Computed example of a mutant assay.
Amino acid sequence: MSRADAIVPVILSGGAGTRLWPMSRPERPKQLLALTAEETMLQLTARRAPVDAGFAAPVVVANALHADLILEQLAQSGAEPQAVILEPMGRNTAPAIALAALAVGGGSTPLLVMPSDHVIADIPAFHAAIATAMPRVSEGWMVTFGITPDHPETGYGYIRVGEPIGEGIHKVARFVEKPPRDTAEAMVASGDHVWNGGIFLFRADVFLDALADHAPEILAAAQASMDRAIREGSRVLPDAAEFARSPSDSIDYAVMEKAERVAVVPVAMGWSDVGSWDALHGISDCDAQGNACRGDVVAIDTANCLVRVSAGKRVALVGVSDLIVVADGDEILILPRGRSQEVKRIIEAMKTD
Rank of each mutant, 00 (worst) to 15 (best):
Val206Asn: 04
Ser108Asp: 14
Ala224Tyr: 09
Ser190Met: 12
Asp301Ser: 12
Lys351Tyr: 05
Ala244Gln: 12
Met41Ser: 05
Ala49Thr: 01
Val274His: 03
Gln31His: 15
Ala100Gln: 05
Arg203Asp: 05
Glu139Tyr: 08
Met114Gln: 15
Thr132Met: 13
Arg160Glu: 15
Pro149Arg: 03
Ala121Gly: 09
Gly146Ile: 09
Ala53Arg: 13
Val137Pro: 06
Ala299Leu: 07
Ile218Leu: 04
His66Lys: 01
Thr132Glu: 01
Tyr156Lys: 12
Ala268Pro: 10
Leu44His: 09
Thr154Cys: 14
Asp301Ala: 11
Arg314Gln: 12
Gly233Gln: 07
Leu201Val: 00
Arg28Leu: 09
Ala288Asp: 14
Val298Ala: 10
Val10Gln: 02
Glu217Asp: 13
Ile332Phe: 13
Ile218Gly: 00
Met41Ile: 06
His193Ala: 11
Ser234Gln: 15
Val315Tyr: 04
Val61Ile: 15
Val325Ala: 02
Met187Gln: 09
Ala222Glu: 07
Ser24His: 05
Ala16Met: 12
Asp5Trp: 00
His193Ser: 11
Lys30Glu: 02
Asp287Trp: 00
Ile324Glu: 03
Ile97Trp: 02
Ala222Pro: 08
Gly90Thr: 12
Val326Phe: 07
Ile334His: 02
Ile11His: 06
Arg294Ala: 14
Met256Tyr: 11
Asp68Cys: 09
Gly155Trp: 07
Arg203Gln: 10
Leu99Trp: 02
Ser13Val: 12
Ala263His: 04
Leu35Gly: 04
Asp150Leu: 13
Pro164Cys: 12
Ser225Phe: 08
Gly233Asn: 04
